[in-house]
């Protein structure tokens, strides 16, 4: 069977005709094909049945398309929200129970405070806060009181002076009035060598106090003040600056007192011995500065030789040694000693 497409004729098979039945029904075929399919259908009963079935299917589908939706379903669709919208509504703050709201608020506050406390640089914040300068309060170290034996090495035990409460110490190479008061209050005057003190540290007996020794200490301090006056103006200012600042008393100063006769001879011998043991002048004045009532020795000394020096000095007579806290810290292995040897003849 020929088809005409325009002036051209096409051959149509059953298969092709079957495939074009839907387009034939819908009117999608061109004129030539439409005519060709019509002619084929007239001669083929099977295809006519298929065409009828196709029409029934189309009709049935159209009927399904005319189905009305249930009103409740329509209403549900119109009023409904999406899943997330429903969830959002349920999770809306206004709809939450009170206890949940309180819990969430508390949790938020706790987290905020934690984060704040962790990440804020508190060290820097504390630096920004102005602080008043606190006076340096130094606890005066308890003075070991030494009992020194006489020339015949008799030793007497003493009671260790009572410890002072915190005392504000002035920086003074010579010593302070307050220290004088402490000395007076303590009455440490009967002393032994450090070695004896170590042996008799459980002693509880207090021997007699000599008032003139207190005056000796006072006088020593006056002499030390004189020494300072002999320094240059520059050094004096420097010292004043030092005195103005309150430094922590981390160092130690040994103060020793002796009363001897033939002071001139003794002075030279002591000076020579100090130098031989490795001592060096520490103050501005010469070692064994001879004054009218005694000799003044201010020197640094190797700590390891201190006992030897002490033994040497004891050979001349009784010696009293105090160890005071001082702002100046000596190098390790070195100590600083101020030795005052009073002239017994002048004392008389």
């Amino acid at each position: 069977m020929d088809m005409n497409l325009g002036n051209q004729k096409r051959k149509l098979t059953k298969f092709l005709c079957r495939e074009m039945l839907y387009d034939y029904i819908q009117g999608h075929l061109d004129k030539a094909r439409d005519e060709a399919v019509r002619e084929y259908l007239e001669n083929d009963e099977d295809l006519r049945d298929e065409l009828e079935n196709l029409k029934l299917a189309i009709q049935y589908s159209k009927e399904l398309g005319h189905a009305e939706l249930d009103e409740s379903f329509l209403k549900e669709i119109v009023e409904s929200k999406s899943y997330f919208a429903q969830m959002a509504d349920q999770l809306a703050w206004r709809n939450l129970p009170e206890y949940v709201k309180w819990g969430l608020e508390a949790f938020t506050i706790a987290v905020s405070v934690s984060i704040f406390s962790i990440f804020v640089p508190w060290e820097r914040v504390m630096d920004w806060i102005p602080r008043e300068k606190e006076p340096a309060i130094v606890k005066e170290a308890p003075r070991p009181v030494l009992v020194v034996g006489q020339k015949n090495n008799q030793s007497e035990t003493v009671k260790e002076p009572s410890e002072e409460s915190n005392v504000e110490a002035k920086v003074d190479e010579v010593g302070t009035q307050q220290e004088n008061q402490n000395v007076k209050e303590k009455e440490p005057l009967v002393v032994s060598s450090e070695k004896d003190f170590a042996e008799n540290n459980n002693a509880n007996v207090v021997t007699t106090v000599e008032k003139n020794e207190l005056s000796q200490i006072q006088k020593l301090k006056e002499d030390q003040q004189e020494e300072e006056e002999e320094l240059t103006e520059k050094n004096t200012k420097k010292k004043a600056k030092l005195i103005g600042t309150k430094k922590a008393l981390k160092g130690e100063l040994y103060r020793a007192f002796m009363t001897l006769d033939k002071i001139d001879l003794v002075t030279d011998e002591i000076r020579e011995k100090i130098i031989n043991f490795g001592g060096e002048k520490a103050g501005k004045v010469r070692l064994g500065w001879r004054k009218k009532d005694g000799s003044y020795f201010h020197f640094t000394f190797p700590e390891k030789n201190f006992e030897d020096l002490e033994q040497f000095l004891k050979s001349y007579g009784a010696i009293r040694v105090y160890k005071d806290p001082h702002w100046r810290v000596m190098p390790e292995g070195q100590i600083r000693i101020i030795l005052w040897v009073e002239d017994s003849e002048h004392k008389k």
């Binding site: 495939e19 039945l21 839907y22 387009d23 999608h28 298929e50 009828e52 079935n53 196709l54 029409k55 029934l56 299917a57 189309i58 049935y60 589908s61």
Partner: peptide, 17 residues
């Protein structure tokens, strides 16, 4: 699309019998 519809309707039509 038309091919799929055609085949689908043919099958649906067979179920209508």
């Amino acid at each position: 699309v038309r091919h799929r519809v055609s085949r689908g309707l043919r099958l649906l039509g067979e179920r209508m019998i």
